[in-house]
C-alpha cells in the first residue's frame, strides 16, 4: 500500500498535465476564471494543485481550512460565491481524478489515489460549508442587532 507521500509524489508528476488541462477548460469551470488571462489562470490552478498535494501528504485539516478560508476571501473579490468556490474546487479535484485514471492506467496506486482525491473533495466541501455556516451565524446576529437599532 502506498503512503501519503507516494500519493503526493504521483500527483506532483501529474501536475503539469493537470495544469494544462485546467487552463484549457477554465471556461467550463467558472465565469470568473473564464475571464482571466491564461497566466493568471495557471497561477490560480497551480496554487490549488500544490495545496492539494500538500494536503494529500499531510491530511492536516487546519492547513486545509486555512487555505479554504483564504481562498473564499480572495475569490469573493472576483465575484465568486461560496457555491462557486465549492464547484470550482470540486471540479479541479474531478479533473485530477480523471487524469489519474486515464494517465496511470492499470498501476496499482490508481484506486488508492482516486479515493484520496475523492476524500480531498469531500473535505473541501465540508470545510467551505463550515465557514459558510459560521458566516451565516455572524450575519444573523448582525441583522438582529440592526433590527434592534444598533450598529451592524
Amino acid at each position: 500500500m502506498a503512503t501519503p507521500a507516494d500519493h503526493a509524489a504521483t500527483l506532483e508528476s501529474l501536475r503539469p498535465v493537470a495544469l494544462a488541462r485546467l487552463v484549457e477548460i477554465r471556461g467550463s469551470l467558472d465565469h470568473a476564471l473564464a475571464r482571466v488571462t491564461e497566466a493568471e489562470a495557471r497561477e490560480h490552478f497551480d496554487a490549488v494543485l500544490r495545496h492539494t498535494q500538500a494536503y494529500v501528504a499531510t491530511w492536516d485539516w487546519r492547513l486545509h481550512r486555512s487555505f479554504l478560508q483564504s481562498y473564499i476571501a480572495l475569490r469573493a473579490g472576483d465575484g465568486m460565491s461560496s457555491d462557486d468556490v465549492i464547484h470550482v474546487l470540486v471540479a479541479v479535484g474531478d479533473v485530477v481524478i480523471d487524469l489519474v485514471r486515464n494517465q496511470l492506467g492499470g498501476k496499482p496506486i490508481v484506486h488508492e489515489l482516486v479515493v484520496a482525491l475523492a476524500k480531498v473533495n469531500a473535505h473541501t466541501v465540508r470545510g467551505v460549508i463550515d465557514l459558510v455556516a459560521e458566516e451565516l451565524e455572524r450575519r444573523r446576529a448582525q441583522r438582529d442587532q440592526l433590527l434592534r437599532g444598533g450598529a451592524p
Binding site: 461560496s82 457555491d83 465549492i86 479515493v115 459558510v132 451565516l136 450575519r139 444573523r140
Partner: peptide, 30 residues
C-alpha cells in the same frame, strides 16, 4: 469507496448550496 465518497461530496454540495443561498439572502437583507 471512491464512488460513495463522491456521493457524500454531492450530498455536502447540495447542503452547501442551501446554506450559501441562505447566506446570500441574509446578506441582502442586511
Amino acid at each position: 469507496e471512491a464512488a460513495v465518497t463522491r456521493e457524500l461530496t454531492v450530498c455536502e454540495m447540495a447542503v452547501g448550496g442551501v446554506l450559501g443561498e441562505r447566506l446570500r439572502a441574509i446578506e441582502a437583507e442586511l
